[in-house]
Write a protein that binds this DNA or RNA. Structure first.
Lengths: 343, 343
DNA sequence: ACGGTTGCCGCAACCGGTTGCGAAAGGAGC
DNA sequence: GCTCCTTTCGCAACCGGTTGCGGCAACCGT
């Protein structure tokens, strides 16, 4: 039973040629209607489905798109942000009838899929592209393989990227804090060295300058972008006794970590320290105090990335896009209020 | 440039036969070492990779496994529980060198992948299998296609399933609440009609009886398993003035919803009402008060499911498994304390 | 009744690899 | 110098479909 049915099996039973059966199944008008019906009937009865590989060999039809995840997939899945992104991608992919091939494999392995024709296009998470990956990807892109990056990757990566305007996002947060009269704003950034984190760090630095906030090296603390990392970084910051009015986190998870460290240290939020997250994941409104966060149009990002890829795969062109971010103000930010506690 | 390289291209350039080139690339000892090197070199230089479809045609080697998501993929991605599951699956899949094909397509479409040979095995989420899907899946299974279900599906589904002992989980929660002296325990269940939800409802009912808790139809409120649904259901429950000591939620999201409704209604947690979640997602420890929750070995579930599938694909056998759950007690449950508020 | 259409269908080549087997080239042994 | 055995390759068939084109029968008109 497990034995695969082939066209030949059908044609033998029907006393027809393979080609005839093939055409009949594809509703070729060349074949008499009666014959078509007869073939279709047997095929249904036997549960026949043409072999995908064989069909792919002649019909150069699109098959699937690949989504390349970072090696540390744990990071991805732990962050609801990526869930949202994935949702955007898969929802569009479903509409287009494309399965999504997921891989946490190292990039080189993955790009092979493209060359092998297992996938017809590649979606990469810009933040997960390392310098070591750039060359391989650039080669693919130069060879006109469809590749789209979600968020910009390393500068050297010559790829269409769909991202949000992170610089503006950081600035929105800083402007908000400045308006609240907060000057000493720490940034719990992503891991030092990643282009992605460096980009936001630059945005933070220039923002600090632009808005006339306190510039202090001690206020920049890298994290590993996890909640635990955020908590630990924030705890270290507090332990260093650096004066602190507010914390801007690289993502919501880090912000949650900061919240718990602040609570442990007995600092009130937002009375003593305001906290701003990034991404505006569902977590933000769940936690208490509800998190002020820079909203990215995350799902839309996933959708647009897929659409861009689709266009590329169809032989068309696609442009890089920077979507706007928006600051969602909730309870975790507010003016400093030196009532209760010390003084 | 986009023109695909074929074996023939290589063989022509090298003045060798296709077969020789093919063998050389696969390091066949039949081929002289020098020749192998020469071939490999050119292949590398040209960036040649054999076409996956063509290769699949002759080598009946495993290619990928499919993960069948429910139609409402939004639900899946919104729940960190599934992220964890996915992490388990993909981490194992990566080790095994299997890409994971994701689909939110309706099941019939998906099972076709299996028949077409696009995937060599299928992982389904038991909770997302509808009665309409059962027949098709059973047919596949009867034909000895490798299928593994994560959590048990409908009773009629004859599939190997890897799940947790949900009945025990529900009982653990109820036992805990009983020990706290709480008798009126509401259950915010999953959607009525789904086999999955009904299973837990049965567990709840029998648990209520076993532990001598209050049995009241009004205490059973179905939700759609989202946070909003949980909030709304809990609000309705409160509005109905049904006396209430504790709430057991179908998952952590629902529990979070309940928390916010309770807060809005001015009920203290756990002073007035205790809340227990299910799944013990990362959310549980983030929210305040931190959520007591029934922990499922979620990631392990994903891993074991993949392993079972792998075994099936290798022609071996696999057994259904029920993993144990564990109650993680945090701040959201405690003895009733009628101090502050009314009376 | 006969040449010409038309409608259906089958032959065979092809997609891009893999593989069994036989043949040519080269070296060893005598 | 002539067998005989290896080593190294190439021929051809095959995997399971798709497709160009040609053949055959039935049917048409006259």
């Amino acid at each position: 039973m497990r034995r695969k049915l082939t066209l030949k099996d059908l044609s033998d039973r029907l006393g027809l040629a393979r080609s005839t059966v093939s055409r009949a199944l594809r509703d070729d008008p060349q074949i008499a209607v009666a014959t078509r019906a007869r073939v279709r009937e047997l095929a249904d009865a036997l549960g026949y489905h043409p072999n995908a590989a064989a069909r792919a060999l002649t019909q150069r039809t699109p098959h699937a798109v690949g989504l390349m995840l970072p090696r540390s997939s744990q990071l991805v899945f732990a962050n609801p942000y990526f869930s949202e992104l994935l949702l955007g991608v898969t929802s569009r992919a479903e509409e287009a009838g494309f399965p999504v091939l997921l891989s946490t494999a190292p990039h080189p392995d993955f790009t092979v899929w493209l060359r092998e024709g297992r996938v017809d296009g590649l979606l990469v998470l810009g933040s997960s592209v390392t310098d070591a990956d750039v060359a391989g990807l650039n080669r693919l892109i130069a060879a006109r393989y469809p590749v789209v990056s979600i968020h910009a990757g390393p500068r050297a990566l010559q790829v269409v990227s769909i991202g949000s305007n992170e610089r503006a996002g950081v600035w929105q947060a800083l402007a908000h804090l400045q308006q609240l009269g907060l000057r000493r704003v720490a940034f719990l950034s992503g891991p030092r060295g990643s282009r992605y984190a460096e980009r936001r760090i630059r945005a933070y630095r220039s923002g600090v300058e632009t808005f006339g906030l306190a510039s202090d090296r001690a206020l920049l603390v890298p994290t590993d972008d996890t909640r635990e990392g955020g908590a630990e970084a924030c705890a270290r910051l507090l332990a260093s006794e650096t004066p602190l009015d507010a914390v801007l986190a690289d993502n919501d998870l880090v912000a949650l970590g900061a919240l718990s460290s602040l609570r442990q240290a007995g600092r009130r939020v937002p009375g003593d320290v305001s906290v701003v997250g990034f991404d505006d994941t569902p977590l933000a409104e769940v936690v208490s105090p509800a998190l002020t966060s820079v909203r990215q149009p995350t799902r839309r990002l996933g959708e647009m990335a897929f659409d861009a890829l689709l266009s590329l795969m169809a032989g068309g062109s696609a442009q890089s896009v920077r979507l706007a971010t928006r600051l969602i103000v909730r309870e975790s930010t507010g003016p400093a209020c030196h009532v209760g506690g010390a003084t």
